[in-house]
């Protein structure tokens, strides 16, 4: 039986991430994590492959990612029992069209940039409970699709503010299996609570999402009487430079030293060199960092225990224009070392 402690579900028999894949675009390929990606594309428009718009290009990104993940797992799409997937497009269409081609049972999720851990939490719970033998979880984002939907046309000339973040053109996919299979164990999952501390600046998502990350971290630490030093690394989704600094300040105030904290938005790009302002963002950002950096490190035994959070900003263009503040959410996944590596 799994145990529930406060907001966290602890798995007695932890399900495992048995295979994973990360796909990225040009700017991601120029970043520090390039070598961790399974596929990097120079032209993320996928014109020669029949994509007519940026939305279908994002679908292509997901399709490629899913197929690589399944190939690495050595299974066919027919063997997948359930897929949790999400993206940032209106009505979650990038995932829906990717699943149309894949033909697996599918539940679409929306958690903005937190979607990867939202999917992982649900996927792990389903795998842990024995409801699904092979669960695919996947998220993506595409810079161009996000830009034209949420900001301005791509050829429009605008200058970004220093706190703005760059939507990653990337996708990440994980295949979850029940305990007893080789892979990275998911030790616990924590569903976050929506937090809103009155941030209204749509160009400062990191600040809007920080309280959500802090609240989920504190919920976990309080529930288990744990501290950041119990982990080799604590990773947050895409708070960027501004949000990360705020998180460390806040956690210090709460009595926790977050010196082993990294943010996916700052890992995916070299913020000093790549002109992405405060860092990366988008559902694909934390998904790609998870699959290109975090899981490989756990696999190689360089890390033994990691707390991985993705943070999402849950406003829409409409609520923003109507003057609502920006609520945030963060879900956490606790990842351990694979059994083989742990015994060595």
């Amino acid at each position: 039986m799994s145990v529930r402690r406060k907001d966290t579900i602890v798995f007695e028999h932890p399900p495992v991430i048995s295979a994973w894949a990360a796909v990225g675009g040009k700017r991601e390929g120029e970043g520090p994590l390039a070598s961790g990606f399974d596929l990097l594309v120079e032209d993320a428009a996928f014109g020669p492959e029949g994509c007519s718009g940026w939305e279908s290009a994002e679908t292509m990104l997901q399709s490629k990612c899913a197929r690589i993940c399944l190939r690495k797992a050595g299974i066919s799409a027919r063997e997948v029992n359930l897929a949790f997937a999400g993206d940032m497009q209106a009505q979650c269409t990038a995932s829906a069209y990717a699943m149309r081609a894949l033909g697996v049972p599918f539940a679409g999720l929306y958690g903005a940039c937190s979607t990867m851990t939202e999917s992982l939490c649900l996927g792990a719970a389903f795998a842990g409970a024995g409801y699904s033998e092979r669960t695919l979880v996947m998220t993506s984002s595409h810079f161009c699709a996000a830009e034209r939907q949420f900001r301005t046309p791509l050829t429009y000339g605008g200058k970004r503010t220093t706190t703005a973040q760059w939507t990653a053109t990337a996708a990440g996919a994980c295949l979850l299996r029940p305990a007893g299979t080789a892979g990275i164990p998911v030790l616990s999952v924590t569903f976050g609570r929506v937090q809103d501390y009155g941030v209204h600046d749509i160009n400062n998502m990191g600040a809007a999402m920080m309280p959500a990350a802090a609240s989920t971290l504190l919920a976990y630490f309080h529930a288990f009487d744990a501290s950041p030093q119990d982990f080799d690394a604590i990773l947050t989704g895409d708070l960027g430079e501004v949000g990360s600094e705020l998180l460390c300040t806040q956690m210090r105030r709460e009595g926790y030293d977050l010196s082993n904290h990294w943010d996916c938005g700052c890992l995916l790009y070299d913020t000093s060199r790549q002109n992405v302002q405060a860092g990366g963002s988008g559902p694909g950002c934390s998904a790609a960092v998870l699959c290109a950096r975090v899981l490989p490190r756990l696999q190689r035994g360089e890390w033994k225990r990691v707390l991985f959070l993705s943070t999402g900003a849950l406003m829409s263009q409409t609520t923003f224009l109507q003057g609502e503040s920006i609520p945030g959410i963060a879900h956490a996944v606790e990842l351990g070392a694979p059994k083989e590596a742990a015994t060595v």
Binding site: G25, K26, R27, D43, A44, A45, G53, W54, F143, C144, E147, R148, P153, L154, T155, T169
Partner: peptide
């Protein structure tokens, strides 16, 4: 004659 362009 034109099409949308990636900024990456």
């Amino acid at each position: 004659v034109g099409r949308s362009r990636d900024q990456n």
